[in-house]
């Protein structure tokens, strides 16, 4: 399917399987008068028939996708979030290397992934004095640097793609947890616990300090205060709460997240009232913190 074509373009009017595939595949970013075009191209006799076919193709496609997505499991999500973290960390490390290298060649060199992307997209300096096509010269340090920058940018793109995958998968695997924690934190908790079932079986005091194992064991050895929060610190309800009430906020959040994980594991129904209960609890904790 080319850029500006509808889902029916070039399809045999009786090809139902093909129609479903086309609906699923996506394509142009530009809408058009598809019903008129479909009738004009002979895909449907009239608008009514077009809409009938559209209904069959879209419902069948959505049903297939739901079935596939519901097979999405917590283990895939776990690998996804870990890969996302690895890809992002590595991209940042490589970006630092690129910046350091580039700084040795150009005083105006920038930093970060954004600079690596800029460098990757820049054209090699056409000074003409060098050995002809310096652009493809494997021994040219400038070319090696540009190639490294291109890989860095590509890796950062993959991290973004992985995040997108994590967002989708988290909502499918654990809708309540994802709604309450945000998809990325939901995935982190599942990943740290080792799976949704393991997370659902944890006491909320464990969920509260997931990701803070080092601090927890230091505390258990008797050499440190108990950690107030682990990875749930990234949640606005912990981070945005004044420090002296943060422990309470973390405990309240962990409690509701644990319930959300249990609902997701054992029932799967979406329960929006859980979010409301948590909102209310945090509001109370924060007002208390204001000293009012």
């Amino acid at each position: 399917m080319s850029d500006h074509e509808g889902w029916f373009a070039g399809l045999d009017p009786d090809d139902r399987v093909g129609a479903v595939e086309r609906v699923r595949a996506g394509g142009t970013g530009t809408p058009a008068e598809w019903p008129d075009l479909a009738v004009a191209s002979g895909f449907a006799a009239d608008a009514d028939e077009y809409y009938e076919k559209l209904h069959e193709a879209t419902t069948t496609a959505a049903r297939e996708q739901v079935r596939e997505r519901e097979r999405a499991d917590d283990q895939q999500l776990k690998h996804g979030i870990r890969a996302m973290d690895d890809a992002r960390r590595t991209a940042n490390e490589l970006a630092e290397r690129v910046a350091e290298w580039a700084g040795s060649r150009d005083d105006d060199a920038g930093t970060g992934v954004a600079y690596a992307r800029e460098l990757a997209e820049s054209t090699p300096p056409g000074d003409g004095g060098d050995a002809g096509n310096s652009g493809g010269d494997a021994d040219d340090p400038g070319e090696r640097l540009r190639a490294l920058a291109a890989r860095t940018a590509a890796l950062a793109d993959e991290a973004d793609e992985l995040e997108r995958f994590v967002e989708t998968a988290a909502h499918d695997v654990a809708p309540n947890l994802a709604a309450m924690a945000g998809p990325v934190l939901a995935a982190r908790l599942i990943s740290l616990a080792g799976g949704l079932e393991a997370l659902a079986k944890m006491p909320s005091s464990t969920v509260q300090v997931l990701g803070a194992e080092e601090a927890l064991f230091a505390h258990l050895r008797g050499s440190a205060p108990s950690p107030k929060h682990g990875v749930i610190f990234t949640h606005e309800y912990v981070r945005g709460t004044p420090e002296d009430e943060r422990g309470s906020a973390a405990r309240a959040l962990a409690g509701k997240l644990t319930i959300a994980a249990r609902v997701d594991r054992y029932s799967g129904e979406r329960r929006p009232e859980l979010d409301a209960e948590l909102d209310e609890r945090i509001r109370t904790i924060r007002t208390r913190g204001d000293g009012s």
Partner: peptide
């Protein structure tokens, strides 16, 4: 772009 090939104006 995931649905513009299906959705009319």
């Amino acid at each position: 772009e995931e649905y513009a090939h299906v959705v009319e104006p």
